[in-house]
């Protein structure tokens, strides 16, 4: 479904990403691992059109995303959340979601015909509909950010560390919710996560980045046993 082809991105002299290629099949949950500064968030920014790659291309099905403005990428069906949450703080939860609804991809599939209220209850946020987004707790803001991304009716959702800072129970809830997104809404998910356990249980496929290079890709169990990953990331000699 998503095809990333030899993407490189440099900032000044620093190579944030070099020659990354991979494919994400439809309805997969695709995990991305890597230490801070490995280039994960940059990769999301490149896919979502927030940043232009120095070279390489991103394709969604038959459509080339590279070079499109973020709102065109959104209407092509890719939504993302931000590692540092960016809710519309001065608007209510409902207004946040309404905006995403009225813009967004506009190509709602049968399965993804959630209404505003459905979406709020899907994310367990009905109670907060009239709260200002800025007044929510961090974990609620992360949920809001996911709800807002879902409201654009994406085919593909990029989740950037949505579990960081959450309690174990909240992480468990979120894992369930992401599974439900795929099962009930048919959404393909790419997820960056530092919470290793969650990533391992959730993903079908994991890619590991290290200093902008792809060092491994495979099923969670193969990744856990990969010696390169162990030395580079898990810190095992």
């Amino acid at each position: 479904m998503l095809k990333v082809n030899r993407i490189s991105k440099s900032f000044g002299g620093i190579r944030a990403l070099s020659n990354i290629s991979f494919k994400v099949p439809e309805r997969a949950i695709f995990g991305i691992m890597g230490a801070n500064g490995a280039g994960k968030t940059t990769l999301f920014a490149v896919i979502a059109g927030n940043q232009l790659p120095t070279s390489g291309e991103v394709w969604l099905n038959e459509r080339r995303l590279t070079g499109l403005a973020p709102h065109h990428v959104a209407s092509a069906g890719v939504a993302r959340t931000f590692q540092i949450v960016r809710p519309f703080r001065g608007l209510t939860v409902q207004e946040n979601i309404r905006i995403a609804f009225s813009f967004g991809s506009g190509n709602r599939s049968e399965a993804n015909q959630l209404s505003e209220t459905d979406l709020l209850s899907f994310m367990g946020m009905e109670r907060f509909a009239n709260y200002l987004a800025g007044d929510l707790t961090l974990s609620q803001q992360k949920r809001l950010e996911m709800a807002r991304a879902l409201a654009t009716a994406p085919q593909m959702l990029l989740l950037d560390e949505v579990m960081a800072g959450l309690t174990a129970t909240e992480v468990q809830d979120l894992i369930e919710m992401i599974r439900k997104m795929r099962a009930e809404l048919g959404i393909t998910v790419m997820i960056i996560e530092h919470v290793m356990g969650a990533l391992m249980t959730l993903s079908d496929q994991i890619m590991v980045l290290d200093h902008g290079q792809k060092i491994a890709e495979g099923t969670p169990s193969s990744i856990a046993q990969n010696p390169d990953v162990q030395s580079a990331y898990l810190g095992v000699a």
Partner: peptide, 24 residues
């Protein structure tokens, strides 16, 4: 829709863009 988009831009332009608001 224009007004909603403009308010989204005011609140967070980057987020507005990713949600599909043609910001420019």
């Amino acid at each position: 829709r224009l007004g909603a988009g403009l308010i989204a831009i005011r609140e967070d332009e980057t987020a507005a863009g990713t949600l599909g608001v043609p910001t420019m």
